[in-house]
Design a protein around this nucleic acid. Sequence first.
DNA 1: TCAACTTATTTAAATTTTTAACAAAGTTAA
DNA 2: TTAACTTTGTTAAAAATTTAAATAAGTTGA
Lengths: 211, 211
Amino acid sequence: MSSNVNISMSVIKRLPRYYRFLGKLRDEGHLRISSGALSSMMGTTASQIRQDLNCFGGFGQQGYGYNVEQLYNEIGKILGVDRMLDSILIGVGNLGRAIASHMEFEKRGIALLGIFDKNPSLAGTSIKQYKIYHADQLKEFCAEHHPKMAIVCTPTVSTEKVIDELVSYGITGFWNYSHFDILSKYPNVNVQNVHLSDSLLTLGYQMKNNC
Amino acid sequence: MSSNVNISMSVIKRLPRYYRFLGKLRDEGHLRISSGALSSMMGTTASQIRQDLNCFGGFGQQGYGYNVEQLYNEIGKILGVDRMLDSILIGVGNLGRAIASHMEFEKRGIALLGIFDKNPSLAGTSIKQYKIYHADQLKEFCAEHHPKMAIVCTPTVSTEKVIDELVSYGITGFWNYSHFDILSKYPNVNVQNVHLSDSLLTLGYQMKNNC
DNA sequence: TCAACTTATTTAAATTTTTAACAAAGTTAA
DNA sequence: TTAACTTTGTTAAAAATTTAAATAAGTTGA
């Protein structure tokens, strides 16, 4: 029963990791996996895995475990990789370029429709199969193609304005790499702020204190 | 009292975000901030901020709040940005290049001593002020300069071997961008695995369910 | 200087999350 | 077919985290 009411973010945030490990198991040809085996592989507890999966329904079978392929697909569906979410990317700096070329969007249910940047010399060029447009074309492009999600790789200073603009164009999801923290000031807008340096600082703390 | 015993990871992982917001406040010329004002700015509770900060000592003053500059510096010290942690970066793909040029290491207590890659044509070139060496020189380099932390941007397949190698060279911290999950199989090694796609999938879930 | 006000510190309560335990169900092999 | 074994789904307990309340301390302006 995927009556996804009130599933905590703690659980949701673990799903992508399960998905990765199951994908690897599938690629290696494993047909079945028990919560115990998976937990020791992932460095977590079997109890947590069972508890997490049961938020979405009984995917396993007593005495057998979980079918790797099936569980992989089920989690994929929960995460929405089976639909294509129309998206755009804003800002072709080092990071924007890396993400556009590095991330396998199609495998993750994302259709990247276009890339936008203020630099006129980039307009007309491409990164992989993705065309780069000038930022001035953004409004028109959104009116025509109705993308729902934006990957924001702009410099900090311009981000706040860009967000407001994009919301007015119908964007309801932000994967934000800019240094500006997007807060949920809009009711129906979803945000994931990514701050690469945060985990670096956390690691710095650990190395200062755990070694 | 920074007798940092038993401070939970939940708290530690919030520190970098406090640090960012305080840095911004400082740059904007604010001298003082109350937990209440900071909490509404960050979209969290004043209670949590006060509780978090008190793990490390009383940085505030009743009736006044916190001195922005002082609190910024204190959190910086806790996170270790006041020391320079010798580090290396492995793997000059799109992502490795973006991180080397994008991340402000010096501001975060990291001294990037060198970059390594298997591609011989990259050896001798640089990214910003950071020199690129051939991967074959890694062992010798570590023996001479004793870096403690490695930023891993290698392809999945080679990662596991690289980790073992680096541990044997004295690396005790990994900031890992490869698709391979580093588990804590070594007792005194600290790891932060970064999986950019995880937050994308989480956002995908949110957009499927919250809108 | 004093009184009203602000705000941190500290303690306690509530909530959430994680872990453990157990009964029910299905597998496996003789 | 059956009995021992495995493993899940589920319930309950424990632990951790977050939020709230109460207390103490310092600020500010008249």
